[in-house]
Computed example of a mutant assay.
Amino acid sequence: MTTAPAPQTRKRPARQRAVASADRLFYERGVHAVGVDQITEDAGISKASLYTHFRTKDDLVVNYLVGRSDAWQEHVEAELPKRATTPGDRAVAVFDLLGEWFDEPGYRGCPFINVEAEFGHDHPSHDVTLAHRTWVRELFTSLLREADVDEPELGALELCLLYDGAMACAQADPSRPWAQAAGRTARRIVARPGTPASK
């Protein structure tokens, strides 16, 4: 999935340009390292224009993560039906999508984990992170339940561990096939017998 925004043009509305610049700069450099002056300069807008749309830099950070979450959800929901026909295979295909993202130039890890590392739980972005993680967990739970895997909620947590671990490992050591390794482990989780069959 290409997570970087499309190239900016001066014809785009100021708000869109601010969001696109913040998205790229926050992801590339981190939130603390990027000031409002850098965002307005990159977007070609004034501070007054920026603050017309965002009361604070924190509001811009929240908008950045909401945009990342929406884009990833749309991508996953559009791609999974194309990649696999069974719910178990779709759960594994999530890791194929991660692997494609890891291979893109400029991959810098999970934007949600990165922002959490900078701010912790007290920042307004924390609620966005929790909502995104809830979506990931519920996606896995639903797919495992449809696949008749025993204890789908616990299995979903295991898949979330693989999901987060693969992103962190790919950021720290991009030379290794972390997504493929996570996908192989995910397949073993999906292959567990369902509760009716195991009795």
Rank of each mutant, 00 (worst) to 15 (best):
A172I: 07
L154N: 05
D23R: 08
Y163R: 04
P152N: 06
A156D: 04
R24Y: 09
F140V: 01
W101Y: 14
V92M: 01
R10P: 03
T195P: 07
W72D: 05
R10Q: 06
L157A: 14
G194W: 13
M167K: 03
L159M: 04
A14R: 08
R24F: 07
A14E: 09
H53M: 10
S46Y: 07
E79I: 10
L80W: 06
D164V: 11
V128A: 09
E151I: 00
A43M: 04
C169A: 15
A84G: 08
Q171C: 07
Q38T: 03
A18M: 06
P5S: 02
H126M: 10
H123G: 14
A182G: 07
A6E: 13
P177I: 13
E118M: 05
Q16V: 14
A182D: 06
G183W: 10
R83K: 11
A179E: 05
K82W: 05
F26I: 06
A20W: 00
P177F: 09
L60V: 11
K47M: 13
D173E: 05
D42K: 06
E79S: 15
T129Q: 05
A43K: 06
P87N: 05
C160Y: 02
P174M: 09
A170H: 02
I189A: 03
R55V: 07
E77L: 15
P152R: 05
D89F: 15
D164A: 11
K82I: 10
R176Q: 07
D148H: 09
G88Q: 11
V190L: 08
Q38Y: 02
K82R: 15
P105T: 11
Q38D: 11
K11M: 14
G120M: 15
L162H: 02
K82C: 13
W178K: 08
L65R: 01
L50S: 02
P152Y: 04
T195K: 13
A172P: 03
R184A: 14
A182V: 02
I113F: 09
T185V: 11
D23W: 01
G44T: 01
E138H: 09
Q171G: 03
T56A: 08
T40F: 05
A197I: 03
D173M: 03
P105L: 09
L144P: 04
L50I: 03
L162W: 01
G35F: 12
Q38K: 04
G88D: 11
D89V: 15
T86M: 09
T85D: 15
T185F: 07
E74S: 13
R15E: 10
R145S: 14
Y51F: 12
A168C: 06
G194L: 12
R12E: 15
E77K: 10
P111M: 00
V136Y: 08
R137E: 13
D58P: 07
S21H: 04
E118L: 04
A6V: 09
E118F: 04
E41V: 02
L139P: 06
A156G: 04
E74A: 14
H53K: 10
R145T: 14
L139F: 05
A168E: 12
A22W: 01
